Computed example of a mutant assay.
Amino acid sequence: MLYGNILTPDGWRLGWLRWQAGRVTAIDGDAVDPTDNDHPRLLPGFVDLHVHGGGGADAMEGGEAAATLARTHVRFGTTSLLVTTMTAPPAEIERALRDAAAWVAAPPECAARLLGVHLEGPYINPGKLGAQPPHARPGVIAEVEALLALAPIRLLTLAPELSGHAELIRHLDARGVRVQMGHSLGSYEEGVAGLAHGARGFTHLFNAMSGLHHRKPGMVGAALAHAEYAEIIPDLLHVHPGAIRAALRCIPRLYAVTDSTAAAGMPDGEYRLGTQHVTKCLGGVRLADGTLAGSTLTMDQALRNLVAIGLDLADAAQRLSRFPADFLGEHAIGRLEVGAHADVAVMSADLDLDAVYVGGECVHRRDAASTTETDPCR
């Protein structure tokens, strides 16, 4: 059990969070304003639906990569995540999916929960690759079904304007796969049509999509006018704080992702993003031409950034936990309530991450006296 300011779906309570066999059994205590005390903030563990890498490992490498990134990101409060692939030749995508699926089936110890795969590409617009390699192509149902047989693909990013993608969106929605629109040159009308066909959100809102103009609202305009959900990268490099605040006013369940690369949790230097070499420097990751190539963001820093631009802590926290969990249809994570997994990010009043619990097991702890980090699993 843990004592502190507990963020529940009904608000803050100061008291005891209790669990058994990895599930919350009771939350005792009274309603409270956490700013009135210095007790720990017990937040739902963070849920990151867009993670390419971390700890020096890139998901497209296959092998141990999924386990490494899950062990890396749990140190920053992420207790559940989707291993995210990139646009690549078919054989490389298939290898990455097989290896990720093996870790989903046999989860690594002392790591974030692996919920499955986010397939970002190759079904994107070749004119809006961003940092994706030039292997984009339209998707066909038979090929996507073959990929679904290799791994639990929970989320798929595509460009809705490509030929055949209206039918593909409808098919994926019927199969229970969430579809987000991104890496797109689509018009406002094509974005609205994508939502009507069954797409549920937008991938890294504002980035790698047709922008908002008052006579051509573009994919951004479709998101701001119609979306219930969209992901955004709040590293304050990918999107200006003013644009984040505009999106918050328009999209009720805007949620945070890291879009992190192998460089997350690592020192400055050279890393891989798929087959490409990227450089981590000054808090960002870029290709040789200066293009932003994913991020080094971690979810605890995403929380601090959202609070820094004016969000209340409870509002910021739900955009890292409950909203992405709900988007994926996962209702036992991303919240602290009876019956939910005991996934907890324990933070100080200053929003330093002090400890992380996954299923009631402490997998990371920071020594408050020395500010050193320890691994309770060792």
Rank of each mutant, 00 (worst) to 15 (best):
L237R: 14
A166K: 00
H197N: 11
V220A: 11
R215H: 11
V179D: 00
G194I: 03
E190D: 09
L237N: 14
E189T: 13
G182V: 01
A230K: 01
S187G: 11
G221I: 10
M209H: 03
S210E: 14
E189P: 12
G176L: 11
H213G: 15
V239E: 03
D235C: 06
H197P: 08
G201I: 09
G211V: 12
L224C: 13
R178N: 10
G164F: 08
A174L: 14
L212N: 06
V239P: 01
V179P: 03
G186S: 10
S187E: 09
L168V: 07
Q180E: 11
L212V: 00
G176W: 00
R170M: 01
S210I: 02
A223H: 09
L212S: 00
H238Q: 12
H238P: 12
L185Q: 10
A166N: 12
L162Q: 07
T203E: 01
A166I: 03
E161C: 00
D235G: 08
P234L: 04
A208T: 13
R200H: 14
E189W: 05
I233S: 07
H204F: 03
G198P: 02
M181L: 12
N207P: 12
S184I: 02
A159G: 10
Y188F: 14
S210K: 09
L224M: 14
L162T: 06
S184C: 01
G198C: 10
G191M: 12
H171T: 08
A196T: 06
R200I: 05
P160I: 11
E161Y: 04
G218F: 04
A225S: 15
E228R: 04
G182R: 01
V192H: 02
L195G: 07
